[in-house]
Design a binder for these strands. Structure first.
Lengths: 95, 95
DNA sequence: TTTATTTTGTTTATATTATAAACTACTTTA
DNA sequence: TAAAGTAGTTTATAATATAAACAAAATAAA
C-alpha cells in the first residue's frame, strides 16, 4: 500500500470543518460557520479566503438588515477535492 | 454534530504515515520508514523525535553490521492517540 | 593508503501555516 | 452623541513542516 498525498488546502482543521459543513448545507453564512466551528472571526476570514483562492468555495457578499453578510457556497471543485481528501486519508487509516 | 479537535501531533502527513505504519508492523527501522513514506532523512528524524516526545513511540538506537540503526515502536499511548484521531476525523467526514 | 563514496542519521535554517490581536466601518441603543 | 454591538478584514506573531547543511563512521576505489 502507498500513502496518498493529503491536499494541504484541506489538511487544516478549520478549513476541513468549513468544507465539511458546506458539503452538507450547500450554503452558509459567515456567522453560522463561525458558531459551528468555534473559530475566531480573523481565522475564519483568512481560511475562507484560502478556500476561495483554491476555487473550493464561492464567497458572496451582500447586505442583510443593513449589516454586511458573507455567504459561502461549495463549488464542484470543492466537492471533488473533499472526496479525494477523504480517499487519501483512508490510506492512512488501516481499515 | 460537533467537530472534535484533531490532535496536532498526528495531524501531520508524515507523522500520521509513521504511526500508521507502526500500528501495522509494531516495529520498524528508520530506513524502512523513510522508504515507505518517501520522506527526507532530516524531516523523518525531526518527526519521529516529536512522536517520541509525545510518548507515542519509543526509539531504540543500536548498531547493525557496524552501522547505526534506529528502531521505532509504537506505545500504548500512541495506539490510543491514533484511534482517537481516527474517531475525531470521522466527525468531519459526513459518512 | 589516502581519497572518494555510501550509510545513517542529526542539527540548523528557511519557508509556510495557523492563529490571535488589532483594526475598520457601520449600526443600534441608551 | 457616546457607548456598545455586528460583521467582518488586515497585520503580526507563534508554531510547523521541510529542506539544506553537517557529522561520523564504514566501505570501496585509485
Amino acid at each position: 500500500m502507498q500513502f496518498k498525498e493529503l491536499d494541504p488546502i484541506l489538511h487544516s482543521q478549520l478549513r476541513l470543518a468549513v468544507i465539511s459543513l458546506l458539503i452538507s448545507v450547500k450554503e452558509a453564512e459567515f456567522t453560522f460557520l463561525k458558531e459551528k466551528t468555534n473559530a475566531t472571526s480573523g481565522n475564519l476570514s483568512v481560511q475562507i479566503s484560502k478556500l476561495k483562492e483554491a476555487g473550493y468555495i464561492d464567497i458572496i457578499k451582500k447586505f442583510n438588515n443593513n449589516y454586511p453578510q458573507t455567504i459561502c457556497k461549495i463549488t464542484p471543485t470543492g466537492i471533488e477535492a473533499f472526496e479525494n481528501y477523504v480517499k487519501a486519508l483512508q490510506t492512512y487509516m488501516n481499515l
